[in-house]
């Protein structure tokens, strides 16, 4: 039952809700992890822990952007998911080629290998979903 959606399909419908669920889990785990790291051992690896916190914020913004409907939410989602993709690629590469800079793991270390590569696949799915739902014209809702 599609709402009387203005041209674009809302991102928070159908399979998009699964995407939001995964984003919410990552928002929670990245933020909680960063919180503990910053609170208990910030001095050990400040860069890695700040990156951890940054990734948490990016996941939260992506979750909110995808879960809400409207042009500004969609812009937010596009921005957050793009930053997420750049982040996982840059941090992933740095963690592989310059281990000294990242002595401690973040969600994005090793392209998200510690999280079953989900951090690498998630932004691609997110961008695909934003592209797909963003095209004009009524979409078939399932």
């Amino acid at each position: 039952m599609p709402d009387a959606a203005p041209r674009r399909r809302a991102t928070a419908t159908g399979p998009g809700r699964v995407l939001i669920a995964v984003y919410a889990i990552f928002a929670l785990s990245a933020t909680a992890r960063a919180g503990v790291q910053l609170a208990t051992k910030f001095h050990e690896a400040p860069l890695a822990y700040l990156l951890s916190a940054f990734s948490g914020v990016v996941y939260i913004l992506a979750t909110v952007g995808l879960a809400r409907t409207g042009p500004s939410a969609r812009r937010l989602a596009w921005t957050a998911v793009t930053i997420e993709l750049v982040g996982v690629l840059v941090v992933g590469s740095l963690s592989v080629f310059d281990r000294v800079a990242f002595p401690s793991a973040t969600v994005w270390s090793g392209y998200g290998a510690g999280y079953g590569w989900v951090p690498l696949v998630l932004p691609l799915l997110g961008l695909f979903w934003l592209y797909r739902t963003g095209r004009n014209g009524p979409e078939k809702a399932r």
């Binding site: 928070a12 809700r17 699964v18 669920a21 995964v22 919410a24 889990i25 929670l28 399932r142």
Partner: peptide, 24 residues
């Protein structure tokens, strides 16, 4: 987590609710 996700899964009652619960 599970109570929130159950709520979210049932808010739009279609096939995808099951996978939302699976994720949680």
């Amino acid at each position: 987590v599970l109570p929130f996700f159950l709520q979210f899964a049932r808010a739009e009652p279609n096939r995808w609710g099951g996978t939302v619960i699976a994720v949680a």
